[in-house]
Nucleic acid binder design. Structure first.
Length: 234
DNA sequence: AGCCAGGCTACCG
DNA sequence: CGGTAGCATGGC
């Protein structure tokens, strides 16, 4: 058996034992505000399942290079004024773009992200309930590799491993690949070696982020990471 | 009081 | 191709 395969699976167990489950999507931590009837457009076309999906998708856009605490407030606002219905969102942006930007202001880059949300809303509507392919998602301006995989994994339960900055920092530090490895290389490494199911994929990514926050911020890269020291690939 | 967040696009050489 | 400026707020 390959040491890489063994350790990638062991690290998952170790992280899970240490941090327990992370309670990410689809369980949202933020407070869902009651719909504001003055601004809601009351579209009823979408089932709750679809709305839940889209809520994850919006979160995936808003959290790009942004702390989840900030995203939280934006999601609260969007819940209140649009109920995460893509039609309501598009109508809202059309109606009062500046106010929409204020809704998502807490999560930063609000000009860019307003456009991204407009794009993904149109894309989602055009899907008509179909599961998007990865390459289709990547054609949406505002959706890059990590966001595409996050959407597929957390909104659609597709078995796609999500690679983020922490994944690269932690596992390059541990010697699994060089720091500049491509997204695709790292993704494949995990998908070829990790034995987990879809839910384990969700958990693994969340655990990596949690561990990264503790030991792999830019200033103290890997410093004091005794937790994973045993799994270093020389 | 700086760093830094669950990145992406556009543009550069 | 690979590398990087710009985007923006809030938390610690």
């Amino acid at each position: 058996m390959d040491i890489i395969k063994i350790n990638i699976n062991k690290i998952y167990e170790k992280l899970f034992d240490t941090y327990s489950n992370q309670d990410w999507w689809p369980t949202s931590s933020y407070r869902k505000d009651k719909l504001d009837t003055n601004y809601s457009y009351f579209d009823n076309t979408y089932s709750q399942i679809e709305i839940d999906r889209f809520e994850v998708i919006i979160g995936a856009i808003l959290t790009q290079n942004t702390n989840w605490n900030n995203v939280d407030r934006s999601l609260s606002n969007l819940s209140r004024f649009t109920d995460f219905n893509p039609i309501n969102i598009l109508n809202f942006i059309e109606d009062d773009c500046d106010k929409f930007k204020q809704l998502i202001r807490p999560s930063g880059y609000f000009n860019q992200k307003t456009n991204y949300i407009k794009n993904i809303s149109n894309f989602f509507i055009d899907l008509n309930g179909e599961v998007p392919s990865r390459s289709e998602l990547l054609m949406v301006k505002g959706v890059g590799e990590e966001t595409a995989d996050s959407i597929l994994l957390y909104a659609y339960n597709e078995k796609e491993f999500v690679v983020d900055a922490y994944t690269k920092r932690i596992f390059s530090y541990l010697g699994f690949f060089k720091e500049n490895s491509t997204y695709f290389y790292v993704k494949k490494l995990f998908e070829d070696n990790f034995n987990g199911n879809v839910n384990d994929y969700k958990e693994y990514h969340a655990l990596i982020v949690e561990h990264g926050k503790n030991y792999y911020r830019l200033k103290h890269y890997g410093v004091k990471d005794k937790l994973l020291n045993d799994y270093k690939i020389i």
